[in-house]
Design a protein around this nucleic acid. Structure first.
Length: 254
DNA sequence: AAGCTGTTCAACCGCCGACCT
DNA sequence: CAGGTCGGCGGTTGAACAGCT
């Protein structure tokens, strides 16, 4: 079976998205939800393939995306999770609220890989840590299943069932709070966000690095989250995961 | 100021699994 | 069960930018 390419129609636009396209996409999703991605561009009046629309939305336009530099804690979390999960960017992203897999992948390939080079060769303690983690007892799958399975779905189901004490103990976690907040977002409401001059808060722009600032200022404002509030929640959630690792009692203390 | 090189990151591509008919 | 569609994922690319000479 040979699969037809996603953008087989001629005349579909490729490359960087313009402000008008962003506006159209955001407005459409706010009003109708994304529904079928493939059908969306035609309905919304965009000369893009559905895949491109989905990517643009999930990686850039979605209201709960946190932009700007990664905090030290976030970087450490990525390093630790990468060590356990490998290049499973979406799984890592699921544990970093407001960050996309694409963004994490980029950060890994640009920043963290370099930072890790000296780190990996640094000390015997590090080698010990690596050997412990690569030991079958710390099989990524096992680790993930044991300690990291508190995905959005799990939290949601635990909220519904309320049966597992283990899971229910997580319901007050920052992650849960974030998830709940995100799930409650209603893109079709009249309170939903519109791209205009006030879309970016000053904090949004200030927290960006120099390069991003330049880009952002030449683009429509996009971020939707109240950055200050989200920052504190993300810090909390990092603590949550660290504590979870440690309290599991089997993880070596890094 | 101009040219070159390295870095960043948004976007694309191809593949895969889940689901539907 | 086969064939087709769809959403999602990870790898890769290339334009834009920063920094250096």
């Amino acid at each position: 079976m040979v699969r037809a390419p996603c953008c087989e129609k001629m005349g579909l636009k490729k490359g960087a998205w313009g402000p008008e396209e962003d506006q159209i996409l955001v407005s459409y999703i706010q009003q109708h939800g994304h529904g079928n991605w493939r059908a969306l561009p035609e309905k919304a009046g965009l000369l893009r393939c559905g895949k491109s629309c989905r990517l643009r939305w999930t990686n850039y336009l979605k209201p709960d995306i946190k932009r700007g530099n990664f905090s030290i804690k976030e970087e450490e979390t990525i390093i630790n999770l990468h060590e356990m999960l490998g290049n499973r960017w979406s799984a890592i992203a699921a544990r970093l609220p407001g960050r996309t897999d694409n963004e994490i992948k980029n950060v890994w390939h640009t920043l963290l890989k370099k930072k890790l080079k000296p780190y990996h060769n640094k000390s015997s303690q590090d080698s010990k840590r690596h050997s412990i983690i690569s030991n079958s007892k710390y099989d990524p799958k096992v680790l993930e299943n044991s300690y990291l399975s508190t995905t959005k779905d799990d939290v949601t189901s635990s909220q519904q069932s309320g049966s597992s004490s283990e899971i229910s103990s997580l319901t007050n976690s920052p992650i849960e709070k974030m998830t709940t907040k995100n799930e409650k977002m209603d893109y079709s409401s009249e309170n939903s966000l519109h791209i205009n001059e006030s879309f970016w808060s000053a904090d949004d722009v200030n927290c960006l690095n120099k390069k991003s600032k330049a880009k952002v200022q030449s683009r429509p404002p996009l971020n939707a989250m109240e950055t200050v509030g989200v920052d504190s929640k993300i810090d909390d959630s990092m603590d949550f995961w660290y504590n979870l690792f440690i309290s599991a009692g089997e993880m070596p203390e890094f």
